[in-house]
């Protein structure tokens, strides 16, 4: 889920860069240092005096991509398979729609796990506070949410 979110953020950012480039064309060479400056944000002054971190990454996108690829290779050598490079898409449109459906079901079932886990905790509190309506009602609502999420997950192909 984390990998998907990060890829989504990167993809969204790339699209937005493309969109903004139409309004204010700038070369990548001028954008990358600007990104690094802005990325430093409020902490830029702080970083100048703060002790240097142990690991350093390139401040430009190309450098980061190279390091990302290197880490991918490291992960692959360790047997971690979730290492497809950013932007590398080999899926067909049919494959993509199947992947979309699978992704949706995965998200629904992940949500079911999260919802039911929280529901269990709420109901645990309700047990400890037996006789307190606030807790009992919260447990009932949470159980209902968990049931709804479980049904949605079960119904998903």
């Amino acid at each position: 889920m984390r990998g998907d979110a990060l890829r989504f953020a990167c993809a969204m950012g790339v699209l937005l860069v493309g969109g903004c480039a139409k309004n204010a064309p700038r070369s990548e060479a001028t954008m990358a240092p600007a990104a690094a400056d802005a990325y430093a944000g409020d902490g830029a002054a702080e970083d100048a005096s703060a002790p240097q971190r142990e690991r350093h990454y390139a401040s430009d996108l190309e450098g980061l991509q190279a390091e990302f690829d290197q880490l991918d290779a490291d992960l692959a050598s360790e047997g971690v398979v979730d290492g497809a490079p950013l932007g590398a898409s080999t899926t067909t449109s049919a494959g993509a729609s199947k992947a979309d459906a699978t992704g949706r079901c995965e998200r629904i079932c992940d949500l079911k796990v999260a919802i039911c886990d929280v529901a269990e905790r709420i109901c645990g509190l309700a047990e400890a506070h037996e006789g307190e309506a606030k807790y009992a009602e919260a447990c009932t609502r949470a159980e209902s949410r968990c049931e709804q999420a479980s049904d949605a997950c079960d119904a998903c192909e």
């Binding site: 953020a9 990167c10 950012g13 860069v17 969109g19 990104a35 990325y39 980061l64 950013l86």
Partner: peptide, 13 residues
């Protein structure tokens, strides 16, 4: 938007 790209890549790494 370039800031979001940089953040996404840094976090991924």
């Amino acid at each position: 938007p370039d800031v979001l790209v940089a953040l996404g890549q840094r976090l991924d790494v």
